[in-house]
Design a protein around this nucleic acid. Structure first.
Length: 814
DNA sequence: CGCGATCTGCTTTTT
DNA sequence: GCAGATCGCG
């Protein structure tokens, strides 16, 4: 997208709006036939099966651009939904580089972001205060724990975490407490707690993530004029990552598209049906554990009577060795819509496979390999290390750290989740909404001001007795406690007055000073980082304001031939300015009241937790779980710890669906690599404080031999089953490629003995055994032979253990 | 109230 | 094996 390109479109856009469309081949010229077909689909429901690396985002954005350019829809008539803020941002950036359109005026965002926007605009119908706050996962948990204290709920019998999961699950299924089917006493009690939680949230004027979705769904469902308004408005609905949608999200889409049970079309000339373009890949569905339903894809085809299905199967990312591996692996899954990736590139490099003797040796080997890669000119940020679970990163981090190689770990605490930031936000939220008890409790004694648990318990008693918020309860609390807390609240009130009318960043600055947070962290020897983060919060507030202005920037407007910004009239751009804009002050549709910038900033903080640890622009090795690698690509990828029990994970191995999801996870991991892919596993691994002996993953058996190249030193080249590696895999690393002539032998184990004899220990899976320390247990899995024989045994009292049979003294129990 | 000692539990994660 | 939560004492 160079200068003349956008200059052309600035003019083209204008003619597009007024007369019929200019040649659209500029938009379409770099697309392959499948992609072009997808972009230019008629205005009807359609499903696009987009394989990994098939240019999905590009198709989606070009589709929107094409619809706009050909005058089939106005910017206000587009609803585009993504799962992450990152994806939404990317879509907006790409779109504005294709067309001179004010993307911030369009409904492009995450499900939750769009629901937030919707609820802000219709807060009265939603029965929410205008300045309702959003609970993130942490807030939600502490809210539940508070509830437990208040009502004396047994947290042993109903662990708060499990309750949180239960509530989230109900909301994802669209179920209010009275709708949950109660079959046993346990569920009855859980539903009761769910109801109490709902009451508490409503009283405090807060909503959790699930509530954002559910509440906006209900507002649409129960208010005919509102629903019809949006149905009429959104002519084109585009959903990214459709395989990850849950039941409620699907119902929400259906509602907006006008095909739900509540659609009304009594006037024959009025067609309320927006057309839905769902883009997804069933093979990359890896979020079933949090409620995603791949089945939504099939349901969509059936319920929307989808006539157009397009498969994007050309992969522009990797060579055929990598793709063949991915294709072969995923072919072992049974429930598939069916899709096979192909590439116009050649075979590329073989997939390198390495067997390490320990997790430590595996990390060492990677370090050596990376050094070599960097020496050959590979950028570090183009190298990713993927693992199944976060616990695996430690040993890799240690190795990289000791080797002095810069690296970046994804997945830690994110900016707005850090304790000091949450503390500051609690004050800001109290300014907006004093009823927010979660924030009240967080701020009231931090920094410490002598308000102890005793006082707060008294306060909570008063609040419960009179059914009011904690801050309202202070007036009913006498004594020293009352005076202390009263002083705190008075301080908040003063702050609220002082900051009214201030610029957002000034408010934040003032709050940091007045709350004593800055002083507190400055006094702390270890507080330097936290002070820095708080200062960063001021910066975030500053740039948030300028981001709001972005939409009104001259740069985003069409420019005439002399380079003068042309005024964008709502009519010519099809922009409906009466509609709220994401993260901007939202006018109430009835009264025209607008939300304060602070409120918008707080929503932003809750909905977009920020980058993990943006070590700005440093060229570093990328470490992350397979899950967080989805949607990314790298020149070189290491997939580590590919062992039974780890990958596939033991908790997923019991049922078929779980195993298939693990396989899809592996598929996602493999397809991240552009040029080079390494797969590794280790004979031993430290996990949960004990050494485990994991056999290599079954996934190795599901990869095409011809695409692989075993680079483990030769003398290790024996499989656990005793067979030697054949063909291309037996050559080992030595001499095969000069550039990889690294001596791995220092990491190699003693040669593994070839054992073909039947196991002599006489144990079988399912047997009951007795262990002196762990008591009675059941044998789950048996591994290896002779001195290496080990068994996975489930001890009801001590959990699942791996025991070496040559060491552990086990007696069979009849 | 704050700090150290002890206990627990443990895939994956975005919003 | 380690982090995070909880407990109990000064």
């Amino acid at each position: 997208m160079c200068g003349h390109w956008s200059a052309f479109y600035n003019r083209a856009m204008f003619s597009a709006i007024t007369q019929q469309s200019p040649p659209d081949d500029l938009l379409l010229q770099h697309l392959n036939p499948e992609q072009r077909a997808a972009v230019t689909l008629p205005a009807e429901h359609a499903l696009i099966l987009a394989g990994a690396g098939s240019g999905k985002t590009r198709v989606l954005t070009t589709r929107i651009a094409w619809l706009l350019q050909t005058g089939q829809v106005t910017p206000g008539g587009v609803l585009a939904v993504t799962f992450t803020n990152k994806a939404a941002k990317e879509m907006m950036t790409r779109l504005s580089s294709m067309l001179p359109v004010n993307v911030r005026g369009m409904w492009i965002g995450t499900f939750h972001g769009l629901c937030n926007r919707f609820l802000r605009a219709h807060f009265k119908l939603a029965n929410l205060p205008q300045s309702f706050q959003i609970l993130d996962t942490q807030d939600q948990l502490s809210s539940i724990k508070r509830l437990y204290k208040q009502f004396g709920i047994d947290d042993e019998r109903f662990p708060p975490k499990q309750m949180q999961w239960f509530i989230g699950g109900c909301k994802e299924d669209g179920l209010r407490p009275n709708m949950v089917e109660v079959r046993d006493e346990e569920t009855r009690k859980k539903v009761e707690i769910y109801q109490l939680y709902e009451d508490q949230c409503q009283r405090e004027g807060v909503v959790d993530f699930g509530e954002l979705m559910l509440r906006s769904y209900e507002v649409l469902r129960d208010n005919d004029p509102i629903r019809e308004h949006y149905q009429r408005r959104f002519r084109h609905i585009l959903i990214d990552e459709f395989q990850d949608t849950n039941k409620l999200q699907y119902a929400w889409i259906k509602m907006l598209a006008g095909t739900g049970a509540h659609s009304t079309a009594d006037d024959a000339s009025f067609n309320p049906t927006g057309c839905v373009l769902a883009v997804g890949d069933d093979d990359q569905s890896i979020y079933a554990f949090r409620g995603a339903r791949v089945g939504n894809m099939a349901d969509f085809v059936r319920e929307f009577k989808v006539k157009h299905q397009i498969k994007l199967e050309e992969n522009f990312r990797s060579g055929s060795n990598i793709l063949d591996s991915a294709n072969e692996l995923i072919s072992y899954n049974t429930k598939r819509l069916g899709k096979n990736l192909r590439t116009a590139q050649g075979p590329g490099e073989p997939v390198r496979v390495f067997e390490a003797t320990s997790d430590f040796a595996e990390a060492q080997w990677m370090v050596e390999e990376m050094r070599q890669l960097v020496r050959e000119g590979m950028e570090r940020k183009e190298v990713a290390v993927l693992y199944r679970s976060n616990a695996q990163s430690r040993v890799i981090e240690t190795a990289l750290f000791n080797a002095g190689i810069p690296y970046k770990v994804y997945g830690g605490l994110r900016f707005f989740e850090r304790a000091e930031i949450k503390n500051a936000l609690a004050y800001l939220r109290l300014l907006e909404n004093p009823r927010d008890d979660t924030s009240f409790l967080r701020a009231v004694n931090f920094p410490p001001r002598g308000i102890g648990l005793r006082s707060l318990e008294q306060l909570q008693d008063v609040a419960r007795a009179s059914g009011c918020s904690l801050s309202d309860a202070v007036s009913g609390l006498g004594g020293k406690a009352g005076a202390n807390i009263g002083a705190f609240l008075a301080g908040i009130d003063v702050l609220r007055e002082q900051t009214s009318g201030m610029k957002l960043s000034e408010i934040v600055e003032r709050v940091l000073e007045h709350s004593g947070l800055i002083q507190h962290y400055k006094a702390d020897r270890e507080g330097a980082d936290r002070v820095e983060n708080l200062e960063e919060l001021v910066n975030a507030a500053e740039s948030f304001v300028s981001l709001e202005n972005f939409g009104r920037d001259a740069a985003a407007l069409p420019v005439d031939e002399q380079g003068h910004a042309l005024t964008q009239s709502p009519a010519s751009q099809g922009l409906d300015l009466s509609q709220p804009v994401l993260d901007e002050p939202v006018p109430d549709l009835e009264t025209g009241e607008t939300q304060s910038p602070l409120a918008a900033f707080l929503s932003h903080a809750a909905l977009e937790a920020g980058d993990n640890q943006a070590q700005a622009g440093q060229d570093a090795i990328q470490l992350m779980t397979v899950h967080s690698s989805k949607g990314l690509e790298f020149d070189c990828v290491f997939i580590t710890g590919i062992e039974e029990g780890l990958f596939p994970h033991e908790n997923s191995m019991s049922d078929r669906d779980g195993l298939e999801e693990e396989r899809r996870l592996m598929y996602v991991a493999i397809t991240r690599a552009r040029k080079r892919l390494y797969l590794s596993h280790s004979q031993t691994r430290m996990l949960h404080g004990q050494t485990r002996y994991n056999p290599k993953s079954r996934f190795f058996d599901e990869l095409p031999e011809a695409a692989l190249k075993w680079i483990t030193p030769k003398h290790q080249g024996f499989r656990a089953d005793g067979a030697t590696y054949s063909g291309a895999n037996s050559q080992g690393y030595t001499g095969a490629r000069g550039q990889f002539d690294i001596n791995y032998s220092k990491f190699a184990a003693a040669p593994a003995p070839i054992q073909k004899a039947a196991p002599a220990h006489g144990l079988r899976a399912g047997m009951k055994v007795f262990h002196a320390k762990f008591g009675e247990g059941t044998v789950q899995t048996l591994e290896g032979t002779g001195d290496d024989a080990r068994a996975q045994i489930n001890f009801p009292r001590h959990g699942v253990k791996w025991l070496a049979l040559s060491v552990a003294k086990l007696t069979p129990v009849p």
